[in-house]
Simulated scan of single mutants.
Amino acid sequence: MEAHSDHKHLQALRQGDYSILEHLYEAEAGAVLRYVCRNSGTAADAQDVFQEGILALHQKAHDPDFTLTCPIGALLFQICRNKWLSQLRKKNREVEVRKAEAERYETENIVHNTLEKIEEEEIRQRKLDQAFGQLSELCQQLLQLLASGMASAEVAEQLGMNNANTVYRRKNACAERWRNLFNAQTA
């Protein structure tokens, strides 16, 4: 491939003439700034990328096997563009990793909290069952029949009570006794 006319600038850099760098700053820094700012970056990001691009160009200039085949400004812009895209990919990966970790942590917490709640509910249910077992046979039958949806009049007849009012009074007394037994276990 034939060398571009700007290859002379690389040769000047090889020989220690850095005046081309000032020219590149003036001519190309604005384009890099606009590109980076339009693509999720800041002026500070653009300045960092431009500096990295200048350093990369300087390294290319000192590679004896490298031949410039395009304008030096285009090469510098492409180097800066690639460096910025690489930083964006790295930032996106970091954001994705942070997001995945946050989701994993949240999922673990949800599972842990759910298991804790299930365990607490099982303990609570066991204590309710134990307290229920301490009730009189009549209270147990009364509460079970009412819980099954049987009408108060039918419950009164089946358990040999006078009427539905007696069932309600007895139900309230049994429920209160059950509550007290349960609370005594959890205290």
Rank of each mutant, 00 (worst) to 15 (best):
Q47L: 00
A56T: 13
A31W: 07
C37T: 15
R38F: 08
A43P: 02
L33A: 13
Y25M: 03
A56L: 08
D48E: 02
L24S: 00
A56V: 01
A56R: 08
A27S: 15
Q51Y: 01
F50V: 06
E28A: 13
V49L: 07
A56N: 03
A29C: 02
Y25W: 08
E28T: 13
E28S: 06
V49Q: 03
V32D: 13
G30D: 15
G41P: 12
G53C: 01
G30S: 15
I54S: 02
D48L: 02
D45F: 05
D45I: 07
R38N: 15
Y25Q: 05
A56D: 07
L33G: 02
T42G: 12
F50T: 08
Y35W: 09
G53S: 03
A43L: 02
N39S: 14
L33E: 13
D48Q: 05
V32L: 12
R34A: 14
D48T: 00
T42K: 10
C37H: 09
Q51D: 03
R34M: 12
E52C: 06
N39L: 11
A43D: 06
N39A: 09
F50P: 01
E28M: 06
Y25F: 13
A44I: 05
V32C: 12
L55N: 08
L24F: 11
L33R: 13
A44Y: 00
A31I: 08
G53D: 00
I54A: 03
S40C: 09
V32R: 02
C37K: 14
F50K: 04
R38L: 10
A29Y: 00
L55P: 00
E28K: 01
L33H: 11
A31R: 14
D48M: 06
A44W: 03
F50M: 01
A56P: 00
D45T: 05
L24P: 09
R34K: 14
C37L: 08
H23Y: 14
G30L: 14
E26C: 09
S40V: 02
A27W: 12
A56F: 02
L33F: 08
A29T: 06
T42E: 09
Y25S: 02
A56W: 04
V32N: 07
R34Q: 14
G41F: 07
E28L: 08
R38E: 15
L33S: 04
E52G: 11
G30T: 12
G41Q: 10
R38A: 13
E26A: 14
D48K: 03
Y25T: 03
L55W: 06
Y25C: 04
C37G: 04
C37V: 15
D45W: 10
Q47R: 08
L24E: 13
V32E: 14
A27T: 15
H23R: 11
A44V: 07
V36G: 01
E28P: 02
E52T: 01
I54K: 00
E26S: 10
Y25I: 04
Q51T: 05
D45C: 08
H23L: 12
Y35M: 15
G53F: 11
G53T: 10
F50C: 05
Q47C: 04
I54M: 07
T42R: 07
Q47F: 06
Q51R: 08
R38S: 14
